[in-house]
Structures are given as C-alpha cells and as structure tokens.
C-alpha cells in the first residue's frame, strides 16, 4: 500500500513533464519512463500480462518509433500560432468533467466480489479454462480461445497499420 502513492505521483509527474518539456527527444524518453511506471502499476494490481505488454510496447517499441519519426522532422518544439480558447470550451469541459465524476460514482469498487463482472463471467472462465483448453494461464485462454475472434480482428488491424505505413512512406521503393 505504501509504494502505490509514490508510484502514482511519479506517474503524474512524468505525464506532465512529457507535455511541458520543450526538447522533443527528452519528451520521448520521459514518455518511455511514464510507460515503465505504468507497467509497475499494472504489476501491482496483479495484471502481469498487461504489465508485460506495457513495458515492451510502451517503453520499448513506441520509443523507437517516436525517435525514428523525430529524426525525419525537427527536434525542437516550435510554438505555432494558436487560436484563443473559445468560451464554449471553458464552460463546457468542466461541466463534462462533473458529469463523468457523477457517472463514476455508480461504478463498482475495485475488487468488489459482487460486481457483475466477477459474479457472472469471471468464475466461468476460471473454473472451465483448464478443463476445456488445457491452458493454465487464463488470460491466454480468454484471448486466444474464448475471444479469439476479437484477437483475429486485432491482428487484421496491426496488418493494416503496417501496410498503410509502407504505402505512405516508402514511395521511392520499387
């Protein structure tokens, strides 16, 4: 419990620092450390698979992609002429925040054993996955067996992203 508070403070500080810093390469590395702190938070909450993905993708691959993008553009954040903030945004966005806070009050508490997710669908997976699929890791069983159609569509999305990047940026390649 005691390690969570410094970790969350570190999370907010790195997120603010990535926005506020002027040098864009520093911003990319601060964003990588933000992903690493977020991975630690996921690991504390018990979601080891999500923590693994966050550490590898957020702190590893995304940082490399941001750096490669920066090498093609400029490294300094130049101030663009920004239009003044409209009054509708100043009034509307706090109201939207209040509405979201009001809606969040009805969500179940974290780890609540009587919430709908942990009374209906989670016990079904936990009890049946080792017998039906022979896979001790329930997350893999859910992703690849019970919800494999979703994973199939996600694979199509990744494939489309690679094709689109190649089509847009590799113009001179045969």
């Amino acid at each position: 419990m005691t390690i969570e508070i410094p970790l969350l403070i570190l999370l907010i500080m790195t997120a603010a620092g990535a926005i506020l810093v002027k040098d864009l390469i520093s911003a990319v590395f601060i964003l990588g450390s933000y992903s690493f702190a977020l991975a630690l938070v996921w690991a504390l909450l018990g979601a080891v698979d999500v923590a693994f993905v966050e550490a590898v993708v957020g702190a590893g691959l995304a940082t490399v992609f941001f750096l490669l993008t920066l090498f093609r553009t400029t490294e300094k954040d130049r101030v663009i002429c920004r239009p003044p903030v409209p009054w509708s945004a100043i009034i509307g966005l706090p109201l939207l925040g209040l509405l979201l806070l009001y809606g969040a009050g009805d969500l179940p508490v974290f780890g609540d054993p009587t919430s709908p997710a942990s009374t209906v669908i989670s016990p079904l997976y936990l009890e049946n996955s080792i017998r039906q699929t022979g896979t001790p890791n329930v997350v893999t069983a859910v992703l690849m067996d019970y919800r494999s159609f979703d994973t199939f569509i996600e694979t199509i999305v990744i494939f489309t992203a690679g094709i689109a990047c190649a089509l847009i940026m590799r113009k001179g390649d045969k």
């Binding site: 691959l61 490399v64 992609f65 490669l68 993008t69 090498f71 093609r72 694979t155 990744i158 494939f159 992203a161 690679g162 990047c165 190649a166 847009i168 940026m169 590799r170 001179g172 390649d173």
Partner: peptide, 16 residues
C-alpha cells in the same frame, strides 16, 4: 504478424 509489422514500420519510418 506483429514482428513483420514492427520491422516494416521501422524501415518505413527510416526511409529517406
């Protein structure tokens, strides 16, 4: 699929 896409995007981004 993910490995091919990652390498492909990296080469696309570094293409001058």
């Amino acid at each position: 699929d993910v490995a091919v896409t990652g390498v492909s995007i990296a080469i696309s981004l570094s293409f001058e």
